[in-house]
Amino acid sequence: MRTTVDYGTGEVRTLNNGVVMPALGFGVFQTPPEVTTRAVETALETGYRLIDTAAAYGNERQVGDAIRNSGIARDEVFIETKVWISDYGFDETLHAFDKSARKLGVDSIDLFILHQALPGEFDKTVDAYRALERLVTDGRVRAVGVSNFMPGHLTDLLERTEIVPAVNQVEVHPYFAQPALQEANAERGILTQAWSPIGGITSYRGDSERSTFTDPLILGIAEQYGKSAAQVMLRWHLQQGRSAIPKSVRAERIAENFDVFDFELTAEQLAAVDRLDTGVRGGPEPEDITLETFGLVIPEA
């Protein structure tokens, strides 16, 4: 199995199984299918080589279309997608892979992730992860991971499975940094990948004073470098060793978010951003995820 690929511009992260992944990726959460193809095409033209999607987003097919339209060789684009909880279980998750691969138009997926833990039905979570392990053995997936798993979920999973997740994709931004979870990931050799890395989720609260985009400290640092608040936050992630997957459908923002490799924050600035953590989660509480509340049917096509 290939592990090292030249992804061109940008930084990379070496996962715990030796697979190399771009550090900065492009996310398509809540991006409508009708605009996903063009947004991903723009991202690939800009230089992104990691694209993150999920079965639950409903836009895997459009991501695959964009990658084919780009003319970039398949092995030069790192594709990451996720299994939704409704498809947990060993056979069900193997079938979920088939659905995702068919929509993406690929034979293999670079990083295949469980989208959430099911705390109240953890046997289903374990069976789903064992299916991911089988996909690795069969050579259909290069690396496997989890998303929104808390330290207790990781401990329970590792006690009952063989492959340590390569990635745990979780909410991390300056207002919600989850340092204990990041430490738990690091202790296990799991890369922390940040969703909502520039705190877009904070702007949904209706409190403009608490949005990361308007935070005085972040704006002050941005002014020193002639950069935007988003660019400062992405540097914060990259310099602390995380992967980050910002999203946008605007060409200028897509380009701006990738233009973060020509400056560095000081140790003092990194620490100052760390101190902005409020401990307030923006997304769903991982312990509250149930099939009754969050289940949905993932279509075959």
Rank of each mutant, 00 (worst) to 15 (best):
T3I: 13
T4F: 11
Y7V: 03
G10M: 06
E11F: 04
V12R: 05
R13V: 15
R13F: 01
R13N: 11
L15W: 07
L15V: 08
V19K: 02
V19T: 15
A23E: 05
F26A: 11
G27Q: 11
E34N: 13
T36R: 01
R38N: 12
T42Y: 02
L44P: 02
G47Y: 12
A54T: 10
N59D: 13
V63G: 08
D65F: 06
D65S: 08
S70W: 01
V83G: 01
T93V: 10
A96L: 00
A96F: 00
A96K: 00
A96D: 00
F97T: 10
S100E: 01
S100Q: 01
K103G: 01
K103H: 04
K103V: 02
K103R: 15
D107L: 04
L111H: 12
I113H: 07
L114W: 04
H115A: 03
H115G: 05
A117C: 03
P119V: 05
G120A: 13
G120N: 14
E121C: 01
A128E: 05
Y129T: 02
A131Q: 07
E133Y: 10
L135K: 06
D138A: 14
V141I: 14
V146G: 13
N148E: 13
P151F: 04
G152N: 14
H153Q: 05
E159I: 00
T161V: 14
T161R: 08
E162R: 15
I163M: 07
V164K: 09
P165V: 07
A166L: 04
N168I: 06
Q169Y: 07
E171S: 05
V172F: 13
Q178I: 02
Q178D: 02
T192S: 15
Q193G: 04
P197E: 02
I198P: 14
G199F: 08
G200Q: 12
S203L: 11
S203Y: 03
Y204W: 10
G206P: 07
R210S: 14
S211A: 14
S211R: 04
F213N: 09
L219I: 00
A222S: 06
Q224I: 02
Y225T: 06
S228T: 15
A230E: 09
I245P: 11
I245M: 09
P246G: 12
P246K: 14
V249L: 00
R250W: 10
R253P: 06
A255Q: 09
E256K: 09
N257W: 11
F263Q: 05
E264G: 00
T266K: 05
A267R: 12
A271Q: 13
A271N: 06
A272M: 07
A272I: 03
R275W: 00
L276D: 05
E287L: 14
D288Y: 01
I289R: 08
T290M: 09
T290R: 05
L291M: 10
I298Q: 00
A301N: 14
